[in-house]
Write a protein that binds this DNA or RNA. Structure first.
Length: 279
DNA sequence: ATGGTTGTATAACAA
């Protein structure tokens, strides 16, 4: 049994954000100033691209944030930056599947499980990496079934590397069947979501065209808004019913030394979380 | 145009 009074206290709201930073060391000034200004309760990072010993813990502790890191050399890597320590942490799936790739970390924050994933990009539908991506979703679904219950407060967030619907890419006709917008990936994402998740951005913003990723390789992609919605905050019904809004901070994509992704922020009603007891 | 840019094992990947 855990009460939320002490942890969901950010002026009546409890905020969870996700940000694929594409290298935490290269992005340190941006992430530092973003955290200082926005102060979410939990920030989920993907593509930190460093080992745990190289993570810039000190800079974030100056802001009052604890870092919980699952890294590897050069590639991938996920982490939490949080105002309070997670009560429990799991790194990886807990089996051999992801031993050599740091793509999933899970933490218990004030009675809410947050699962932070960097889903494999897939390269192209013809590449073996595409199968690895589909297998990752299948593995994740098994993992949710084994360890959680859809009645619990669970958040699945991160760079899920799939645009779910035509509205989620800048040119659905031309991009149809490309990696990130392929029916097999959309079906795989939908199966995991079907376990018991609600897409908070789409719930709060039906019909809104809003991206979270703009490719560096397309000239002026951000200015021309040639983007994709790949980063998601999925929440079980319990939390969706207690969420106030979900928005993309796309200003962060327009600055000097930006990541190719923008942060997504989900805001929950702290009082209604505090009023409820689980476990 | 199988291009383009960016971050990391600074050479060649991965995205």
């Amino acid at each position: 049994m855990e009460r939320h009074d002490e942890v969901h206290g950010n002026s009546g709201s409890w905020q969870v954000a996700t940000f694929n930073v594409n290298g935490i060391r290269a992005r340190l000034p941006l992430v530092f100033s973003w955290l200082r200004d926005r102060r979410p309760d939990v920030l989920c990072l993907q593509e930190i691209k460093c080992q745990e010993r190289d993570f810039p813990y000190q800079a974030f502790s100056e802001l009052g944030y604890t870092a919980t890191v699952y890294g590897q050399k050069a590639f991938n890597g996920v982490a939490f930056l949080s105002l309070s320590e997670p009560a429990e942490v799991w790194r990886g799936f807990g089996d051999a599947f992801s031993e050599d790739e740091a793509r999933i970390i899970c933490g218990l924050f004030g009675g809410v499980w947050i699962v932070n994933t960097y889903v494999p990009q897939g390269r192209s539908p013809q590449d073996p990496a595409f199968r690895f991506k589909l297998d990752f979703f299948a593995k994740l679904l098994d993992w949710f079934r084994e360890r959680f219950d859809p009645q619990w407060p669970v958040i699945w967030t991160g760079d899920l590397n799939v645009a779910p619907e035509p509205i989620d890419v800048y040119d659905p006709v031309r991009l149809q069947g490309e990696v990130g917008f392929h029916p097999d990936e959309q079906a795989a994402l939908e199966r995991v979501k079907g376990w018991g998740f609600v897409d908070l951005f789409r719930m709060h913003n039906p019909g809104k065209r809003q991206y979270t990723f703009w490719d560096y390789r397309i000239p002026k992609a951000f200015q021309r808004n040639l983007g994709w919605r790949l980063d998601h905050v999925m929440a079980t019904r319990f939390l969706a019913d207690r969420s106030r809004e979900c928005r993309v901070d796309d200003q962060s994509r327009g600055v000097e030394k930006a990541s190719d992704h923008a942060p997504v922020v989900a805001v929950f009603d702290a009082e209604s979380l505090d009023a409820t007891h689980f476990h």
